[in-house]
Design a protein around this nucleic acid. Structure first.
Lengths: 102, 102
DNA sequence: ATTTATATATCGGGCATCCAATATATATTA
DNA sequence: TAATATATATTGGATGCCCGATATATAAAT
């Protein structure tokens, strides 16, 4: 993966934790739901090796909490996670100011 | 720096090549100019260890060309670089659709 | 009971983004 | 001439983003 489409474009990896926080701010989801939402946006579904360590890290930071329901684990933003997302959005906006309108 | 502001926010690293392509689409610049433009957006100036390998990689991909003027090297987008930026912008827009308006 | 489908989780390896440290080069100032 | 300022470049190390491979678990279908 990250094939760079045969050098048609620069590397677009990154900001995965941010994207996950944003997606979870819209609704709580389990791991593969999140992966499917990302697939819709990027055209490729991130592998378990990508998703689960990222979720683990976000949970460790206190931004997410888990709720086991049968065999799946639903992830929800904590209060701290919501704050982190707002801070992240401001940073994102400043960093990429003007990109979308150009 | 990527200090994470004492855990207030997730990791916001990434997309450096994309950001450089975008900044150079507005005007040609030398390395430290680019670093200063990024500093304005991120609040921290990327170090030479960050900027120069990234520029080198983009040049190697054919997205940039250099022009030496005295002691500085001015970087300019190639035609290929401009195309790459357009592709990257579309990917960026789809990936982060809705983030700025939320 | 076995097979299939789906979900969760980890690990090794590759690569980009970063910093800090180090080195070299050019131009200006003292 | 030496000191200072600025620019370019590389390297080692840390960390995150990724994949592919592997393993385990749960639930449904056969």
């Amino acid at each position: 993966m990250n094939k760079l489409d045969d050098n048609q474009c620069c590397d677009m990896r990154g900001l995965l934790g941010f994207l996950i926080l944003f997606l979870l701010s819209k609704k709580s989801m389990h791991g593969q739901d999140i992966a499917n939402e990302i697939a819709k946006r990027k055209g490729e579904k991130p592998s378990p090796g990508t998703i689960y360590p990222a979720l683990k890290s976000l949970k460790h930071s206190g931004f997410l909490e888990e709720q086991k329901e049968g065999k799946i684990i639903i992830y929800t933003l904590t209060k701290k996670g919501k704050k982190a997302l707002e801070i992240a959005k401001r940073k994102f906006s400043r960093t990429f100011l003007g990109v979308l309108e150009s």
